[in-house]
Design a protein around this nucleic acid. Structure first.
Lengths: 175, 175
DNA sequence: TTTTCCATGTAACTCGTTACATGATTTC
DNA sequence: GAAATCATGTAACGAGTTACATGGAAAA
């Protein structure tokens, strides 16, 4: 329900059409979350079926497909209130599939493991830089971005620790 | 490919059947990852189709379904080596769908927001405790568990920060 | 004696991605 | 004139979950 929470939260601020919603998320939240265009359209239709949103207008400009402007309904507002509370109260167990490799780190020679993790560190650093340079946002959206920043720093610190550990061991092996 | 990496890594250590693999993951890695039984069976069949593993024996005990023991093949070993390297070198962009709510924190009254986040903190703390009390593991599996521990502590620290911030603001409002 | 564990497997379903199609409009 | 943008939508596919079926063995 996280995706519908996101859409409802944005629609609550102002009516938008699908393309616009996707664009906003892409522009302002890409470091924290993502929502493909097709998924956005799909979710909007589905939520319309549930009565959470309704099409409040169809603006045709030229001969391109008319913009379908969505508005949140009362039922949608109620759903939003509940989803938001659930979301805030829960601690979702975070699973990092990208880290399974760590469990098998010792299957690789020390020096190669170090080289690989340095690559990872560089990529992670790039992500951290991207978030750092993101322009500040009004309201609590900033919390989400700050969280991502915090998380990336934590990941970098941990990786640094592992690298130090491995480098120490490498030294030990050579002497 | 993370799940196949996981299975290959385990099969490389010793031949196992599906149930056993699932059980091992459940027992020893449940705080970091998960793999449903049906998914395990499905992946094993699929990997067998790719020639990454083969059934090296069928042990029938009594009249229950015979254990299908899987062994990693040479092709599987090659795949493993590559998957592992890819996995270690990449920094997977971590997306936390569970946190979208934070972007809408200001839609809720301060005192209720605080109460909700305290619930979240308690749940998070419980997770951290679970990882802390997990018995130590041989080999680099420990890295994975340590990472999870590190991550949970980072999350707790950040949440504490947000709560402090909100509590400060609540004080300000009351005076 | 009832429940849980062992061990496999299948079918239906949900969710989301990819890749496409349309066609005007703006930008390079 | 080619390419990217705007704006919607569909169809096919893939991965994973849920829920079920089987049936003996061990534990409560």
């Amino acid at each position: 329900m996280e995706r519908e929470l996101l859409l409802l939260g944005l629609l609550r601020r102002s009516d938008m059409h699908g393309y616009q919603l996707h664009e906003f998320i892409e522009r302002n939240m890409s470091t924290c979350t993502d929502l493909k265009k097709s998924a956005a359209y799909y979710l909007l239709e589905q939520m319309e079926g549930r009565g959470w949103v309704r099409v409040s207008g169809e603006l045709a400009e030229g001969k391109r497909p008319p913009r379908r402007i969505y508005t949140i309904t009362e039922a949608g507002e109620a759903a939003y209130q509940q989803l938001l509370r659930e979301n805030l109260a829960q601690a979702h167990t975070s699973v990092f599939p990208g880290n399974v490799g760590l469990a098998f780190l010792s299957d690789i020679a020390l020096d190669e493991a170090i080289a690989l993790l340095r690559q990872r560190r560089a990529a992670l650093q790039a992500q951290a830089d991207a978030v750092a340079h993101a322009p500040p946002h009004a309201g609590s959206l900033q919390y989400l971005i700050d969280h991502q920043r915090h998380h990336l720093h934590s990941e970098l610190a941990w990786l640094e620790q592992v690298l130090n550990d491995l480098e120490q061991r490498l030294k030990g092996d050579l002497t």
